[in-house]
Design a binder for these strands. Structure first.
Lengths: 204, 204
DNA sequence: TTTCGATGTTGACAATGGAAAGATTTCTGG
DNA sequence: CCAGAAATCTTTCCATTGTCAACATCGAAA
């Protein structure tokens, strides 16, 4: 997996994307604390200074990775919604489960996206991706309550409550703070967090 | 502030505690990403290798600081409860506000306590401090519902929901994800998050 | 008083991110 | 088709960091 067959061409071909993939591997294996740019370069099979031609510095690479993360977070929410059966509230709860599932499946990436100041969260590729994911939540609140977060301040409490709940669940699960029963079956897990997410939803 | 008058004695006197204080300064100013052990030593006015006699490595210093953080988090919750007027539910909500306040006042420390794998969270001084803070929450749930988290699994959902909510609020606020109105008065802020925290509480 | 452990200092090392300069390939305008 | 320019990659270099080892200093107990 880590072996790099020496490439035939002097130029890599698609180093930029390769580096992002390498960064995700590096992040998942070593965590954000021990993340190393040189490690990414090694994984991609290039010299340690090569990334500089594609990313201003290590943080710029992490920014690009974080943006990809937000895209995938959004997809995780929307696909969970699509699979859900039932009414609007069930879709809403399902999107929250998708949020938590993403976090649990990609703890280090999630940490990069929400808990780190290394990525530049103002840079459009990243802020846009984040905004799109946020849009799934506000869309659900709009569908359920008829209140538009963009124009109606009264929607704020619903949006914040729902987001805080799924986000808090994610962080606590990732941080291993909730000592759930060892071999808790997936079904029971989904049932538990669904009930909790439902609590945060708009009042009927 | 950063000036170090050369101390008169070869030995420092209380370097261990001074280093923890220095670490908190370093953390608050530079953030966990740029935290440097040598920077702490400089703040404390000792050579770069001096900390080794008090802490095995940089992570051990961060562990001690995190433990202090959990103590202060617990105090922030209990004092907020003590000041609160009203019934059990109001006390519960107040403790949540204390949790969020602590996070907002100490963002980098909070990040160290919950979002980092650098401290050794299994080490008793740290795990005990965390457990004590957790006990404030479970105590409130017990008072409100009569169910004991330690013995009654049915208390689990209440505890997790409440914790996830205040924790998610804290993380989102710290991460500047919630774009609350610029000069939002303290009163309105407390009112907003109190309403949200109340949502997560046990069903009446 | 002497000795020894605790505490502090200096010097060294490897790893890291980043800058500078050279090498190789590809692109572009004639 | 070809020379020069631009892009991409490598090598070399430097400052910073965490950690280790060796040495210096102090204080307390024998």
């Amino acid at each position: 997996m880590n072996e790099q067959s020496p490439r035939k061409t002097y130029h890599h071909g698609d180093l930029r994307q390769t580096l992002i993939a390498a960064a995700e591997e590096e992040l998942a294996e070593k965590g954000l604390e021990a993340f190393s740019l040189r490690g990414c370069a090694k994984r991609a099979g290039v010299s340690h200074a090569a990334p500089a031609h594609h990313f201003k510095d290590a943080d710029a690479l992490l920014s690009a990775l974080a943006a990809e993360g937000f895209d995938r977070l959004r997809v995780s929410m929307t696909t969970a919604m699509a699979r859900a059966e039932g009414g609007l509230e069930d879709k809403f709860v399902a999107s929250g489960v998708g949020y938590v599932d993403f976090a649990c499946a990609n703890p280090a990436l999630f940490h990069l996206m929400f808990g780190s100041r290394r990525p530049d969260h103002e840079h459009p590729p990243l802020s846009d991706a984040g905004g799109s994911a946020f849009g799934v939540l506000t869309g659900n609140i709009l569908a359920m309550t008829g209140r538009d977060y963009a124009t109606d301040p009264a929607a704020g409490e619903d949006v914040i409550a729902a987001w805080a709940m799924v986000h808090g669940l994610s962080e606590l699960l990732i941080g291993d703070k909730l000592h759930l029963p060892e071999g808790m079956p997936r079904e029971a897990f989904v049932s538990l967090i669904s009930a909790i997410i439902r609590r945060s939803g708009p009042r009927a």
